[in-house]
Nucleic acid binder design. Structure first.
Length: 153
DNA sequence: GCCAACGTTGGC
DNA sequence: GCCAACGTTGGC
C-alpha cells in the first residue's frame, strides 16, 4: 500500500468538508501541476492512504487521513469554460489533467503542525519538509508514513 | 501583506 | 532550446 500527502486550503475545501460529504467521498480535481498530475494518473492506487494537509491558513499541518477509492481518471473540469480550473489548451482527445477519488477515514483530534513535522528527525524525504516544496500531491515514503501515523494516533 | 521559491510562458 | 519575465504558492 502506498502513502500520499494532499495539500488543500481549508477555506476552499478542508477535512471537515470531506467528512460532510454524503458518502464522505470527493473527486480530488483542480490539480494543475505536471509532477502532481503524473502521481494522480500513474502511481496512486486503490486503497492507498492519503494524509490530508491544510495549507495557507492559520494552523498549517496534517489534519486527517483518507483513502483512495478510485484511481486516476480524466479531470473533466479542464474542459469546462465555467470551471475555476478550466484549461483552454486541454483537448478531450488528449486530456492533460487527472484526478482520483478519496474517502474520509478520520480527522485527528490534534493537528500535527508543519513546524513539528520539520522537527521530526525521522522525516527527511517527504517533499513537504524540503525547501520551497510546492507540490500539492506528493508521495510519503512508507517508513516516514509509519512515523507520522504513530505520532498522530 | 510580504516575499522567497518555484513552474510556466513566450520571445528570440 | 535558452532564459527573462511573469504569475502562483504558501509559510510566516
Amino acid at each position: 500500500m502506498g502513502y500520499w500527502l494532499f495539500k488543500t486550503e481549508p477555506d476552499a475545501f478542508g477535512i471537515d468538508d470531506l467528512a460532510a460529504r454524503p458518502d464522505q467521498t470527493e473527486p480530488w480535481d483542480g490539480v494543475r501541476n505536471y509532477q502532481a498530475r503524473n502521481f494522480l494518473r500513474d502511481d496512486i492506487k486503490l486503497g492507498d492512504q492519503v494524509f490530508i494537509y491544510h495549507s495557507s491558513c492559520k494552523n498549517v499541518g496534517i489534519v486527517g487521513l483518507a483513502e483512495v477509492v478510485k484511481e486516476g481518471y480524466v479531470d473533466g473540469s479542464q474542459f469546462d469554460p465555467e470551471a475555476k480550473y478550466y484549461d483552454p489548451k486541454a483537448k478531450t482527445e488528449n486530456p492533460r489533467w487527472y484526478r482520483v477519488d478519496i474517502k474520509f477515514i478520520k480527522k485527528y483530534a490534534n493537528l500535527l503542525p508543519l513546524a513539528e513535522i520539520k522537527a521530526m528527525p525521522e522525516i527527511q524525504e517527504l517533499a513537504l519538509v524540503k525547501k520551497g516544496a510546492r507540490l500539492s500531491v506528493m508521495p510519503v515514503p512508507e517508513q516516514e508514513a509509519k512515523v507520522l501515523l504513530a505520532r498522530l494516533d
